[in-house]
Simulated assay, not measured.
Amino acid sequence: MRKARTFLAASLIAMTCLLASCSSSGVADSRTQGVPDGVQLDALSESPAVVAYDDGSLDVVTLGSGSCPPRATGIEVNDDQIVVTFEPSTNDVCTADISPTTHSFSADKVGWEIPDKALIVFTDFDEPVEVDVIRG
Rank of each mutant, 00 (worst) to 15 (best):
K109I: 09
S57E: 04
R31H: 05
T62V: 10
V129S: 01
V129W: 02
N78P: 08
F7W: 13
D37E: 15
S67N: 11
G111P: 10
D124M: 09
I13C: 10
D80R: 11
A49S: 15
V51G: 04
N91C: 06
F7Y: 11
M15L: 15
M15K: 11
K109D: 12
A43N: 12
K117Y: 01
T73F: 03
D29G: 07
D29A: 12
V27D: 05
A52P: 06
T123C: 04
A9K: 12
M15C: 13
S89Y: 07
T85M: 09
P70A: 04
G26S: 11
D55C: 09
E127H: 03
L119S: 13
L8D: 09
E130N: 11
Y53D: 03
S21R: 14
V61E: 10
V61C: 06
A20V: 14
P70K: 06
V27P: 05
P36N: 04
A118C: 07
I13T: 12
P100W: 07
A96G: 11
S30D: 13
L41F: 02
W112V: 13
Q33K: 09
P88W: 08
K117W: 06
V129G: 08
P69N: 04
D97G: 10
H103K: 07
G64V: 03
V51W: 00
E113T: 13
L8K: 06
G56C: 00
T102S: 08
A72R: 02
D54Y: 14
E46H: 14
D59L: 03
S47W: 10
D37G: 11
S65M: 01
G38P: 11
F105A: 08
V60E: 01
S24I: 08
S104P: 01
P100Y: 00
P48S: 05
I82H: 03
Y53K: 02
E87Q: 13
I114R: 01
V110N: 05
Q40K: 13
S47G: 05
K117P: 00
G74E: 09
T32D: 12
D116I: 04
E127C: 03
P100T: 10
V84K: 01
A10G: 10
F86D: 04
S99W: 04
E76D: 14
A107Q: 11
L58V: 08
V121D: 05
I114V: 13
G34E: 03
A118S: 09
D108L: 09
V61K: 02
N78F: 14
L63D: 04
D42T: 09
E113K: 10
D29V: 04
D92V: 15
L44G: 15
Q33S: 10
S23K: 04
V50Q: 05
D97S: 07
V84L: 03
V131A: 04
N78E: 15
V121N: 07
Q81F: 13
C22K: 13
T16M: 13
V83G: 01
S89A: 07
A43M: 12
A49H: 07
A43I: 10
V51N: 03
V121I: 12
L63A: 02
S23F: 02
G26K: 05
A52N: 04
D55A: 04
Y53I: 01
V110E: 02
K117T: 12
P70H: 02
E127F: 08
T6C: 04
